[in-house]
Write a protein that binds this DNA or RNA. Structure first.
Lengths: 240, 240
DNA sequence: TCAAAGCAAGTGTGATCACAAATCAAAATC
DNA sequence: GATTTTGATTTGTGATCACACTTGCTTTGA
């Protein structure tokens, strides 16, 4: 029988090749806009136009309008009555609202993860801690983008261990919504002097290593509260 | 000065007219699909085609594809690698996952609402209780759709009082995801004999009236757990 | 001089078309 | 007779066009 032989041959070929996938243009546009939003590349209140983004991304309007629609349903962008779309503005209420939701859901996710992470996964997280120190060592040039990316990887690496296919997309949605706010806070941070993010991350890792769900939750809440509290004070004083 | 007079005239005209709004076709399609999904009109695993829905809704493919895209990002629908879209299948893990997320977030929402509802709002909720009894009185024809709608109104009337613009969309997303599952359970309920939903709702209202956040949370979790637990048993036994 | 009307450029929405990929059934091959 | 191949139909994706609405500026009229 040749059948089994052919099958085997195909499998060996498949093992050699890296899947190229079949990502649509729309998906790429969507991912790119997500990245920009989480990274805070767009400012609150900034209005986005379909044709403008299409030009910037070198595609037609079709994939962009679809991506924008998706981001609007996630509340990452806001559809105004004029039918224009903008990055949602920052308000005090919104900041508190986002922080509460993030504490609740990300707290639950990390509590679940604490009881489920295996030593290998913990080691992986710990390694990221080292990477952080390394970056900090050569801090002649503080690279905010790299910091943000590393921070994101650290958190989601943990969340992925919670084993919930429902919670994780909600957390992504929350990051998407708080991205523009956070970036504002981070910039303010840099000006106001360094704050040791690594310290907070270390206490998170310590709690996870001990499988202490409650401690992990508290350490996480402390970590994510920081930029929000900072931003809150900044807005509060700006109002006076 | 005529200006004030004209202004006044315009205002009286405005008071007489009901705003016609400017809802797009896309929005209508999206709402309709949402309604169908939450109401469980689509079965798990059912595949949906753009052209098929466009024909059914008597529009072109354009608004439908945009609405489908939005529902996919909310995880209300699932994009398969074939690029076809289907209603997500029910699995044991997914049921537990959805129930946990709903308990967490809706529980938080009702706890917030408990401390914020004013007597007028409580009275409004209580009135819905009466409506429920009324429906139950003439139960010669059990109207599952009406029951589902009333149940939805009851819950969201409460959640709206939580004062969080972030939590409510997340809850809507969760209802969207659990809609197809729930409907399956509700049908099974009807066959397995009536369960007194009104009883659960009454204890929720009682807790809210006392502004007892913890009791409200527990009563709510008991309420939403019921169909999930039922469905869980059903799936579990079907597996054997 | 200033507010209101008019005009032009820009923008979102929906329809239609072209194309590639998937699906399914019939036909051909072993 | 079972499996593969082929071909027709269906389906999603992206591009383009037409239309309506918004916006900002100019022009007009008091």
């Amino acid at each position: 029988m040749q059948k089994a032989a052919i099958e085997r041959n195909n499998e060996t070929i498949a093992a050699q090749l890296t899947p190229v996938g079949r990502e649509t243009v729309q998906d790429r546009v969507y991912s790119e806009l997500r990245r920009a939003l989480i990274g805070g590349l767009f400012e609150p209140n900034q209005v986005l136009t379909i044709r403008g983004l299409a030009d910037a991304l070198v595609t037609s309007t079709m994939p962009v309008r679809e991506a924008l629609g998706r981001l609007i349903t996630e509340k990452a962008l806001e559809a105004r009555p004029n039918r224009s779309v903008r990055v949602p503005p920052i308000t005090l209420e919104r900041i508190d609202d986002l922080l509460r939701a993030r504490s609740l859901i990300e707290g639950e996710a990390i509590a679940l993860a604490a009881t489920r992470m295996n030593p290998r996964q913990i080691a992986s997280i710990e390694a990221m801690l080292g990477e952080w120190d390394e970056m900090r060592a050569l801090k002649h040039k503080k690279d905010i983008d790299r910091e943000a990316t590393l921070n994101q990887s650290f958190h989601f690496e943990i969340y992925r261990c919670c084993g919930s296919a429902v919670l994780i997309p909600m957390i992504e949605s929350l990051w998407l919504q708080s991205g523009p706010c956070i970036r504002v806070a981070i910039y303010a941070f840099s000006d106001a002097g360094e704050v040791d993010t690594a310290h907070y991350h270390r206490s998170i890792v310590a709690a996870l290593a001990k499988q202490d769900a409650q401690a992990a939750r508290e350490a996480l809440v402390a970590d994510i509260s920081r930029p929000f509290a900072f931003l809150r004070d900044k807005l509060q004083s700006a109002k006076d």
